[in-house]
């Protein structure tokens, strides 16, 4: 067997909504795509920041199949927090306030995505006084774990350049 075919252990962290059948629905894509389940640690009683239940799955599959397994999980609507060494799913919500239209909002968003290696998941804009006046936008960004501060730094920098105001989330103590 070549290295790419030798099954290797991988760990995937998922978060599940607390509803019947969720665990089974999350495991099926693993088996369907050639993954061999080694262990499942269902952390009942523990909640993720979004109020979901964290599940840690150890599985075995050839390294080149692992990406397919993770993609299949995502396609089935399962939220993958961590796959292998890579972590996803940390979210960051910020508000931008100012002349968003005049300063080219789409350019602002593109710059943030490009420089901050973050993905814009959700955008909401409110311009009650019309396009020429000050407006506000709420951005939800998906970042890699541990990158929150870096992403915030980039957002602040871009906002500064465009004379926009950033309202940052309070990272700690807000629960």
């Amino acid at each position: 067997m070549s290295d790419s075919e030798t099954p290797q252990p991988h760990t995937v962290r998922l978060e599940l909504v607390d509803e019947p059948g969720q665990l089974l629905a999350a495991l099926r894509p693993i088996a369907d795509n050639g993954g061999n389940l080694l262990s499942i640690y269902h952390e009942r009683g523990n909640l993720t920041p979004r109020g979901h239940i964290p599940v840690e799955v150890d599985l075995e599959c050839p390294p080149d199949r692992f990406g397919t397994v993770v993609d299949a999980l995502r396609k089935n609507g399962v939220n993958v927090i961590q796959a292998g060494a890579e972590r996803y799913g940390e979210q960051l919500t910020v508000l931008l306030v100012g002349h968003l239209v005049d300063t080219d909002l789409s350019d602002t968003l593109r710059s943030i995505e490009k420089c901050a290696s973050a993905t814009l998941e959700d955008l909401s804009v409110s311009a009650p006084e019309g396009r020429d006046e000050e407006s506000s936008a709420r951005l939800r960004l998906a970042t890699q774990a541990g990158k929150r501060a870096d992403v915030l730094g980039v957002v602040r920098e871009i906002a500064d350049r465009k004379e926009l105001r950033v309202v940052e989330p309070l990272a700690e103590g807000s629960k």
């Binding site: 919500t93 508000l95 306030v97 909401s124 409110s126 311009a127 009650p128 309202v167």
Partner: peptide
């Protein structure tokens, strides 16, 4: 310089 619209957007979330 915090406009009402910023508070509304925050509330939606």
């Amino acid at each position: 310089d915090i406009p009402g619209s910023a508070l509304e957007l925050a509330a939606e979330d």
